[in-house]
């Protein structure tokens, strides 16, 4: 019963959050476009499903994952765990926090895989690209990016470097990659930076940052606690472009290998070469077209 009540409260809050979006859509649909919404029944049901789903999801997070994740972040950053009973903390060495970095990477990866907005974008990308971009591979690359980003961000909090050096060098890497990366993936890669940090990732990551910044001497939780989210939205861009570059390189290699084999065949049997082998990589394929 209490659970049901909690669910209804969460549902009410979700509806309130969605209300401005809904009113904008309806307002423009009725006043500007002035046409009935196509498949109104289906769309309406879809909206209701989204609301129920989001409310259930948030309630489940609140009940199970957030308390656990926050508690673990606190325990892992607690001085008792790291310094094993040493009471006086004078200077910290970054390598004392190895478990924190591993936890940061692991939680970054796993929360990103479960992130609903990323799932949405990945589904759309697979649909639009006609399957050339695999939704699961895209999500895994983004998750790897987030994992690296959050681990590096925690390292930054431990050593206390200013954030903008990291972010600006990240930008430089993004710019360089943009020039060498298949053009088809660039907008999607940029987008994947923004979508990673929403419902699941932000609260857990914020707890980690806060826990770190409040236990390390000389760090202020208010100033150093911020910034992890920025890391988590920069590194997926790099990871997705790297993924595209890797598949492109692999396709080129496969092509070269294919040509070699063809040549051997021709030499051996002196036959006409068969129909040219198509490229293994659809991204590359599309680009050539």
């Amino acid at each position: 019963m209490a659970l049901l009540l909690e669910f209804l409260t969460t549902l009410k809050n979700t509806v309130i959050d969605v209300l401005p979006i809904l009113s904008i859509i309806l307002g423009f649909q009725l006043l500007v476009i002035r046409k009935p919404i196509p498949h109104i029944k289906q769309v309406g049901f879809g909206f209701i499903y989204v609301l129920i789903g989001l409310a259930l999801f948030l309630l489940g997070l609140e009940k199970a994952l957030f308390p656990l994740g926050k508690m673990m972040a606190k325990q892992l950053t607690a001085p008792e765990f790291i310094h094993a009973g040493e009471q006086v903390l004078t200077n910290v060495h970054w390598s004392d926090y190895t478990w924190v970095y591993i936890f940061a990477a692991a939680i970054g990866f796993s929360t990103t895989i479960a992130e609903p907005s990323l799932i949405a974008v990945a589904i759309k990308a697979e649909e639009v690209s006609g399957g050339a971009i695999n939704a699961n591979n895209l999500r895994i690359s983004v998750a790897i990016g987030v994992a690296i980003g959050i681990a590096l961000g925690s390292y930054r909090i431990v050593v206390g470097h200013p954030i903008h050096y990291y972010i600006i060098s990240g930008y430089v890497v993004v710019v360089i990659q943009t020039f060498f990366c298949p053009k088809l993936i660039v907008p999607l890669a940029y987008d994947s930076g923004g979508v990673t940090t929403s419902t699941v990732t932000v609260p857990l990551v914020a707890a980690l940052g806060l826990g770190l910044a409040s236990t390390i001497p000389g760090r202020s939780p208010l100033i150093d606690g911020f910034g992890l989210i920025a890391f988590a939205s920069l590194f997926p861009i790099i990871a997705v472009m790297a993924y595209a570059q890797l598949t492109q390189a692999k396709a080129r290699q496969a092509e070269r290998y294919g040509e070699k084999r063809k040549r051997i065949k021709i030499n051996k049997r002196s036959l006409q070469p068969k129909k040219q082998e198509s490229s293994k990589n659809p991204i590359q394929d599309k680009k050539n077209r």
Binding site: L3, I25, I37, P38, H39, Q42, V43, G44, F45, G46, F47, I48, Y49, V50, L51, I52, G53, L54, A55, L56, F57, L58, L59, G60, L61, E62, K63, A64, L65, L68, A114, P116, I119, A120, I123, K124
Partner: peptide
């Protein structure tokens, strides 16, 4: 509590994605 919460998360994610393709994307 944690098991209940996990079940809710799984159910919620399913509904969300289901509704996404039915409602949000088309509109």
């Amino acid at each position: 509590d944690i098991l209940v919460g996990l079940a809710l998360v799984v159910l919620g994610l399913t509904f969300f994605i289901y509704g996404l393709e039915m409602g949000l994307f088309p509109i």
